[in-house]
Design a protein around this nucleic acid. Structure first.
Lengths: 194, 194, 194, 194
DNA sequence: CTTTAATCGAGACGGTACGTCTGGTCTTTAA
DNA sequence: TTAAAGACCAGACGTACCGTCTCGATTAAAG
């Protein structure tokens, strides 16, 4: 019953508008520029229409800002509910193909490049953003096994790695052909041995 | 007159020691630091024990230096000569697993992160370093088809992407289990459908 | 009808405690820190235990605050009651020499420097602080004329300017020799022409 | 051996062009803007087309830059060659009255205000700019004594202080009446005692 | 006793400028 | 001609204050 938990601190409360604008600007720059090094506090402040002080009041330095912004950006992951394992996997594959161009895709490579210098930054990104997506895909594979559509002795981690990797690696630049997701899912399902 | 081709240019000859030190320092920094942006001419000069001028006399700018350094580092690609398609693919897979930790593995992610800002740098890296390796793997797959060990309707590009991607994506940091290459090759060969 | 001039405006009246604390803190900082530059509104607010708003409600900016604080501190001006004109002028000269080191003397030049930016502030400082002192000195001169000790055709303004200026200009830093006031008064009285 | 003193230090020499551009930009801003407060290092750098580093390499801070720029601008001091002591003093007085409005006059009080914070800077300004002028005036007084026009027991320093101070103090703002120089010189010559 | 209105403290806001640092390029002298 | 040193322009860094703007809490007078 004590109101201690709802007690406001004195002074003007921090602006949520400003906070959101800062986070958004950070993510945009992270996606547009060359990795973490390409994000400058001054650019963030300008784009967010915010004073530098307002950023430094919340995060002590650039690294902390980026970590915070990425943690905020974790989108909710939709569950797999297709009619068949192939359907589910195709949905996943199409999402991966689409994501290559979105802000996350851009951020991802930037962060990969910066991972060595800012390890905890990347670790946190993986935990908050990557893992939930992987878990969703894992769920799709498990569902396929339960339905009797996929091998019960399936190597989940490896399958996941191949599925995701097929979209991350091949070039990182040029557009994928529209049937690429199908081709990946089919190759994955059938195998390549005669 | 016969020595016209061996005529030394006037003045002090360029130091080969300096050149090698510069290239080595560049590759080290590329592996250690945050992508291309983390490699600064000043850092290279300091680490190589060389004046900045000495670098700029040889390469016109940072980008050219990095391209040149990487081109120097491209190792010769061994041909596939295993007893079977599985053997060949395993060799490839093991090479990929091993390469993850080497300087190339480190450089690769750095370059991926910087690809957007320095497109021709990445294009050249792909042409000089990546493509030869991919071509070698493609050859292994073609050999398997000829031998009747792999499906003739194999989707080469997708298979390659899955194979390579399986080693590039999963984590980018932690060590892979020692049997990971086998697991990847087996999953690839068998497929996952029941 | 009679209370119309004493009618209080609605709302909470301004705190005299706060006003005094602000003025005191300002004068303390002026004395402790590096002149006007060392006085910041934020420091004043902190030391006075007062919100910045409470300061800005009373003075429009930093210079106004300092001027106001100094105006508050204006000491009462003693009347000239010496036995002779020379005595009176000497007293004045000694007061000027002594004042060079006090808080007013320390701030005077800074205020002069700010005068360009905030003319009416300086005007007010002159009216409230400088002019009364000048008037006192003028009175001393007039008394001397009445007594027949000084020329009746004396140029009051110029004499005043020379007397005061002799203490303001010469160096602004180093201590004056102890007999300086006498020398000034004597030179002023005698003139320099042979 | 003669060139031992002219041995250049290694490295690129400092650009005289840059130095001049900086000083010019500073003086321009001083004249255009609101005194010293209107001069910012960043504005100077922009107007001079120069990096901030190039400024800070030469002057440690803003005040030093302004002092230095003014010192550069010191006009040559004309010698006293009037027909009489009164003529010489009048010339000096008129120069003082005129100088009140020039860039030096406008900055002088601001610099006095900064003197507390950067004593050696002001010392240098005094040495380079003020002292030569004082010396010139002293010479005029000595010449008057030699000619038998001024008292031989004249108190030079005090006379100088009164003369100069009469123009610095009285108001710092409003224009002086045109006959002010005459009045000052006459009061100085005659003295005020009956 | 309640309303109303201006005050209080605290502190966040968008800015400007500071003085420092690092980066890629240019310009010297000495070897 | 080369190596080394160091200056050049540019611009981000993190800090300090500026003068303004909310807040919730307070203090009187008026209803």
């Amino acid at each position: 019953m004590t109101d201690s938990m709802t007690t406001r601190p004195p002074g003007r409360p921090r602006s949520e508008r400003a906070e959101k604008a800062i986070v958004d600007a950070t993510l945009e720059l992270l996606a547009e520029e060359t990795g973490v090094a390409g994000v400058s506090i001054e650019a963030v402040a300008t784009r967010a229409g915010v004073g530098k002080t307002t950023i430094y009041r919340r995060w002590p330095n650039k690294e902390a800002l980026i970590v915070g912004a990425l943690a905020t950006a974790k989108a909710p992951v939709p569950p797999p509910v297709g009619a068949s394992a192939r359907e589910d996997l195709l949905m996943v594959a199409r999402a991966l193909a689409a994501g290559r161009r979105g802000p996350h895709g851009r951020c991802f490579h930037s962060l990969l490049g910066s991972a060595e210098k800012y390890p905890e930054l990347f670790a946190r990104y993986r935990q908050d953003v990557i893992e939930p997506r992987r878990e969703m895909m894992r769920a799709a594979l498990r569902l396929g096994i339960e339905r009797g559509e996929l091998r019960p002795d399936l190597d989940l981690d490896v399958t996941l790695a191949m599925l995701i990797g097929a979209f991350g690696m091949p070039a990182s630049q040029e557009a994928l052909p529209p049937d690429y997701p199908e081709r990946v899912v089919d190759a994955l399902l059938r195998g390549i041995a005669l």
